[in-house]
């Protein structure tokens, strides 16, 4: 029970910290001081205490966008296990619900963007749905590999691996899958090289441009759910690249937090040393991710029987 409470607490409290760590890393690379690590919390709290300016073109969909997104992401967060602990909700086939909750969030985010009638926001949502068409199949290939390895259709068991732990024989497919999933993580959370969260040129953005018209608490909710999405996908990835646990249960919580912050630093490094890809090259990157996950599956089925 305590574990479940900690899980929910972490899910709710920790996400904005990741953004802070990423920004700090980037600032460090650029030789700046950078905003405080807790800046994202301040931003969100500030936004929640403001009023809203709403476009005259919009309808209820505009408000439904952020609300549904947050609900979907929260529910998805309940399905994944954190560290060595089981997820609060687990049932066979929850991986499909997990993937489709992100789809639901995408439906309403993009619809809310289209609701403003702004050409830029239309552009952003077109890109968002286009790239999802490649990143979602990649995610399913990864799930196939994990399900086959662990012999289960429950995210908790899939991510924890088989009862005896991931054996070294599984390393080859898992390497491929983790590369693929890392690209999916970058694409889904709109980081460089797919999208630049800092740019202010509307023509080149994906996620930021979709939320141009949202303000006040709605914008706060959007920032928060984006951070939570990163928290969730990062947690999934951590299970694959760092599947180590200690015997003492309570140590696993701080260990997980350190691992996740480490991942945030890695993302920050990637953002610092890479440039954003040109928009028409992004499908190539995502197809490569899809191929990696696919190879992982072929390898697994063909050579690990």
């Amino acid at each position: 029970m305590t574990d479940k409470i900690i899980h929910i607490l972490l899910l709710i409290v920790m996400p904005p910290l990741l953004l802070g760590v990423i920004n700090k890393t980037k600032a460090w690379f650029a030789g700046r001081n950078g905003p405080p690590v807790l800046q994202s919390y301040y931003d969100i709290i500030k936004l929640l205490r403001k009023g809203m300016v709403i476009s005259t073109t919009t309808t209820w969909i505009f408000i439904a966008g952020p609300v549904v997104t947050l609900a979907a992401v929260l529910l998805a967060g309940m399905l994944i296990p954190i560290g060595s602990f089981n997820s609060p909700i687990a049932f066979a086939g929850d991986l499909i619900l997990f993937a489709y909750l992100f789809g639901l969030a995408r439906f309403f985010t993009t619809a809310a963007a289209m609701d403003t009638g702004s050409p830029f926001e239309g552009m952003g949502s077109a890109r968002e749905v286009t790239f999802a068409c490649l990143s979602e199949p990649a995610m399913f290939f990864a799930f196939l590999v994990l399900a086959k390895l662990s012999g289960s259709l429950t995210l908790t068991h899939m991510l924890h691996g088989p009862a005896e732990g991931f054996s070294s024989a599984m390393a080859a497919p898992l390497i491929l899958v983790s590369i693929g999933l890392f690209v999916v993580l970058l694409a889904e959370t709109c980081r460089i090289p797919v999208d630049d969260p800092n740019t202010h040129l509307e023509l080149t953005m994906i996620h930021e441009v979709m939320v141009l018209d949202h303000s006040g608490p709605l914008l706060g909710i959007i920032l928060y759910s984006a951070a939570m999405k990163m928290f969730i996908l990062g947690t999934v990835l951590l299970h694959i690249i760092l599947p180590f646990q200690t015997r003492t249960m309570w140590i696993n919580w701080p260990m997980f937090i350190i691992e996740l912050l480490g991942l945030a630093i890695v993302i920050g490094i990637v953002e610092s040393i890479m440039a954003r890809l040109r928009m028409r090259h992004i499908p190539g990157l995502l197809i490569a991710a899809l191929l990696f996950c696919g190879f992982g599956f072929i390898l697994l089925v063909r050579y690990n029987q």
Binding site: L48, R49, G51, M52, V53, S55, T57, S118, F120
Partner: peptide
């Protein structure tokens, strides 16, 4: 939320 009201309605941001 204390002040989560629509404070004004304007046209869509036209950049």
């Amino acid at each position: 939320l204390p002040r989560a009201k629509v404070v004004s309605r304007a046209g869509t941001w036209d950049c």
